[in-house]
């Protein structure tokens, strides 16, 4: 009897190890296959030339520009909405707003792209443009930012709020001096996740950003924006070895951006954990 239980135990953990290997293997395999395919295209020319030549400089700059736009639009609104849900809203309105924000999180990205195209690009006559692309991406990632901000603020011990109220601090300075600084690392790691998602998205951008072989300009309307995921997708359909390598190189660059964001997120999240540990004493 005892041995049977021991065997079951072994089998169970063996299955768990297998499962974890199945989780780890794809990401390793993907990194290797992308790096292998990208190898012929990697070089200085990748960063010094645009897609008109043999580089992807314009796409890299475009992606960074889109990330900046998302940070400004979705970052501001998302954090403010999260603060509202955690600190100001109450009762029924809080529940309703949170529910709709969660529904928005489940919105298929192609639906956002489609509506972005029909309304922003066509009806509003913005054309394929930076603003249309940034708004489409922002709608996609805003719910994540709202959620992480709300959770971050809820984790701030209520002792701090009570202490501030006891000292007679008005709510805006309680928020600005105590709650937000304490929750800032956790909020930032939420923002980083949102940026990571934005880096990898193609569906909402396909019909809002367009593409161009020139470097992106700081123009909100009527100026198409090149970006990395588009290069990955379209160059793959082109004939020849060179475009395939360029496509893989664009994938490699977006993976590098992703890894940088993940590492930044980890550092910030580590600080957040230390912060809350210190506060809860």
């Amino acid at each position: 009897m005892r041995t049977r239980r021991a065997v079951t135990d072994r089998l169970f953990w063996g299955f768990c190890f297998l499962a974890f290997a199945l989780i780890a293997a794809p990401s390793v395999s993907m990194l290797i296959s992308v790096a292998h395919q990208a190898a012929p295209a990697v070089g200085w020319s990748l960063f010094s030339q645009t897609t008109k030549g043999i580089g992807i400089q314009n796409a890299i700059l475009g992606t960074l520009l889109l990330l900046l736009g998302v940070l400004i639009v979705a970052g501001t609104i998302g954090v403010a909405a999260g603060v509202y849900l955690a600190e100001f809203a109450s009762g029924r309105s809080e529940k309703v707003l949170r529910f709709f924000s969660e529904v928005l999180a489940g919105m298929p990205s192609i639906v956002i792209g489609y509506i972005g195209y029909i309304t922003l690009v066509v009806q509003f006559h913005w054309g394929y443009s930076l603003l249309a692309a940034v708004i489409a991406l922002s709608v996609l990632v805003m719910p994540y930012i709202v959620k992480t901000t709300e959770v971050a603020l809820r984790q701030v011990p209520s002792v701090l709020r009570e202490g501030a109220a006891g000292l007679g601090m008005p709510r805006y300075s309680t928020l600005g001096r105590i709650l937000v600084p304490t929750a800032l690392p956790a909020i930032t790691s939420g923002l980083i996740v949102a940026l990571a998602i934005s880096t990898g998205e193609l569906a909402p951008l396909l019909f809002t950003a367009g593409f161009s072989d020139h470097n992106p300009r700081l123009q909100l309307f009527h100026q198409q924006v090149p970006y990395l995921t588009n290069v990955i997708f379209t160059d793959l359909a082109l004939p020849g070895k060179r475009p395939h390598a360029t496509s893989a190189a664009a994938a490699l660059v977006s993976l590098v951006i992703l890894i940088v964001l993940i590492v930044a997120g980890r550092i910030v999240a580590g600080r957040a954990r230390r912060n809350t540990a210190r506060m809860s004493l």
């Binding site: 780890a24 993907m30 998602i197 990898g200 990955i232 793959l236 964001l261 993940i262």
Partner: peptide
Amino acid sequence: LGIFLELLAGIPSVVFGLWGVYTF
């Protein structure tokens, strides 16, 4: 090891597509 989860979560879906069609 948790990095694998974050990496998988952030990999662009185009890359998943290419990996699926050429490698996997």
